[in-house]
């Protein structure tokens, strides 16, 4: 655990040194959500969420279970479309373009907004095929060597290449949980998305694998806009520059991560951070 603590500390330092916390709000806005509501059948799950997601920074959504943070995340790449009876209202704009516009192709949207899920879910194919799948279906590689390059660089960016370079043809499902999750991140990166959504990416992982992924998220921030849903307030504090607190389907408070954790405005936020609700 000592090693882990050291790693976490290191991560925190690097966050602090890399970006002045207040910078997050000064960055250009990548995603702009206004009055987003979600109904599952008759039940309303989200009530008028409005938030701006800054470019090339990590934004975390925190809150107790069932607060709607994952639901909101899934609105951003329209994964809620796949749920029977889900209705989404309001607007979400990516670079000023409404992603719920009927003329927008959801396939294109998901190529621009990648997603990493709670439980590592590599395809039951080889490691290579897992990463190559996205570029292949989107027609991003012109030749086999192009594809090889994309696969290798994606695995490198996900910090997995050194561990798997000798067994690219082995099934991705044979990796450890943490490796699988990094494979899923590599798979998402391979398409060259602008935004990466992460739905509690470490909740199924042990502390060491978690620390590795957190470090990776911090590195990816330089090139990608990242939105992460997390149960762990410590994780939100460690990796994100902006934090939004959800409770019972409402966005209670949002702001610079440091402010939220040190100086919350709302009592509910304070209670949650102090461990009184959740």
């Amino acid at each position: 655990m000592d090693m882990l603590a050291g790693k976490v500390k290191l991560t925190q330092q690097s966050v602090n040194s890399a970006m002045n916390p207040t910078d997050a709000l000064a960055r250009p806005i990548r995603l702009e959500a206004r009055d987003v509501t979600v109904h599952y059948g008759a039940k309303q799950a989200l009530f008028g969420i409005s938030i701006d997601i800054p470019d090339r920074a990590v934004t975390s959504f925190i809150g107790p279970s069932g607060c709607g943070k994952s639901t909101f995340l899934r609105c951003i790449n329209r994964m809620n479309d796949t749920i029977e009876g889900a209705r989404v209202g309001g607007s979400i704009k990516l670079d000023g373009e409404d992603i719920y516009d009927p003329s927008l192709d959801v396939v294109e949207l998901r190529a621009r907004i990648g997603m990493v899920f709670q439980k590592p879910n590599p395809f039951p194919k080889s490691i290579y095929e897992n990463v190559a799948y996205g570029p292949r279906i989107h027609g991003l590689a012109r030749s086999k060597s192009d594809l090889d390059e994309i696969v290798v660089s994606s695995l490198r960016k996900a910090g997995l290449f050194e561990e798997v370079k000798d067994r690219l043809s082995e099934p991705g499902t044979g990796l450890s949980g943490g490796q699988q999750q990094r494979l899923c991140i590599a798979r998402a990166i391979a398409v060259g998305p602008e935004v990466i959504l992460m739905d509690e990416p470490c909740s199924a992982l042990d502390p060491i694998a978690t620390a590795i992924i957190e470090e990776l998220i911090d590195e990816l921030r330089e090139n990608y806009t990242i939105v992460i849903v997390t149960h762990s307030m410590q994780q939100a504090a460690r990796v994100s520059q902006k934090t939004a607190f959800f409770h019972l389907g409402k966005l209670i408070e949002e702001g610079v991560t440091e402010d939220i954790f040190t100086n919350p405005v709302h009592k509910q936020t304070q209670d949650y951070i102090m461990g009184r609700i959740g």
């Binding site: 796949t82 998901r110 899920f117 439980k119 879910n121 590599p122 395809f123 279906i137 798979r187 398409v191």
Partner: peptide, 18 residues
């Protein structure tokens, strides 16, 4: 078939047919 596999594919931008 586990929903995780479907989500993984859709999340990658695969069409339903794919």
């Amino acid at each position: 078939v586990s929903p995780a596999l479907r989500q993984a594919a859709l999340g990658m931008g695969a069409s339903k047919t794919q």
